[in-house]
Design a protein around this nucleic acid. Structure first.
Lengths: 197, 197
DNA sequence: ATCATTTTAGGACGTTTGTCCTAAAATGTA
DNA sequence: TACATTTTAGGACAAACGTCCTAAAATGAT
């Protein structure tokens, strides 16, 4: 399962750096987060930081791969846990509810990272996009199982876009109630997808 | 109409700075754009730049107000041009088509700016949010005229969220065809709104 | 206990940043 | 023409950044 810090096994310095960077990149953005901030958050010196990650792109790549692994584990878990494909899709929709407090403050971790890297014209754009691709192919697979074989990818992209828009506006307007409203709407939409085969 | 540079009346240095900054903030982000870059784009010295704008927050505020004015003019124009409220809403939806080339490359100017300022915890967050509010109240007014008085604001926010999501994914996946597909979907949705009073 | 390796701390370096100053050039006015 | 004001250029400045180096401390193996 998820290799969380068991509190029995203490995290290595490297792991602690990755987690701190992950969080700071989400909350403050990649460019606006400095080596010094990450080092301070972990409680180590900048020199020690440099021992583990030589460049800023290094730590970014590692954070993205870390997110990819975590996301993959989550999706696989949903696939064995959810009984029907629509159950699994609803698990995806409910991320918005589960993480609404953070989404309200910082938006979607995937969408905001991709947007930032695009503006920076950063080489890691493609890696960040893989996060979206992960959700896209997973959702697409669920829609195929739901009986929408030829429209599966279109539906997956539509649902992805919806959640992106919800996250963007929720953070711009600092509005959690809006998230709830739109999630209800998404569930209704999925129901109508299930009803009409 | 839009006060474009008539090429008869040459733009003042100040105006040229604002337009250059506006474009660069959109394409590269606010923080990633430096005084030097804007000055170079305009073709003036950094010292001259400082004569017109003393701080970076100064130029940001001015750019946001510039966008607010341009947007206001555009919306008022649509209001006298579009015959029915649904015509006017369709004008909004079609921004995605008109600007698809830029949206594909840089996302939505409003959404990406708001997201960035949130991460920077920048004082101008509220001003940037006004851009969204402009569209929100305008769309809400159209939905009222369409006969959805009590659900007008909800519909406005829903449409705003949709376009945000479309812009985010279109830029992440560099996919213009996706924009076309989702815009068609939005037009269908609006038709169903009009049919069901 | 000794030694080799890994890990850490702290500072140095060159660059870029936003900001500010001063003097020259351009412009308008009498 | 002579003068006052606006506009421009170019450099100075401290601070922050990513990067890199060196030496001490911690750790593990023999």
């Amino acid at each position: 399962m998820i290799p969380k810090h068991d509190s029995a096994i203490p995290m290595s310095t490297r792991e602690r750096i990755i987690e701190a960077a992950d969080q700071l990149f989400y909350e403050q953005g990649f460019e606006h987060t400095s080596f010094a901030q990450i080092a301070q958050a972990v409680g180590i010196s900048r020199g020690n930081f440099y021992y583990h990650f030589r460049t800023k792109d290094d730590i970014l790549d590692t954070v993205i791969n870390h997110r990819l692994q975590r996301t993959n584990v989550m999706l696989e878990h949903w696939e064995v846990e959810g009984e029907t494909p629509s159950d699994r899709i609803r698990s995806f929709i409910n991320i918005l509810i589960m993480n609404r407090a953070k989404i309200k403050r910082f938006g979607c971790p995937v969408g905001t990272l991709c947007s930032e890297l695009i503006k920076l014209d950063h080489p890691a754009q493609g890696d960040a996009k893989e996060l979206f691709i992960l959700f896209r192919t997973w959702l697409s697979r669920q829609f195929v199982q739901l009986g929408h074989a030829e429209k599966a990818d279109e539906l997956a992209m539509h649902l992805l876009a919806q959640s992106q828009g919800i996250a963007t506006l929720a953070s711009a307007f600092q509005d959690e109630a809006f998230i709830n409203r739109e999630v209800d709407r998404l569930h209704d939409w999925l129901t109508s997808c299930t009803a009409t085969p």
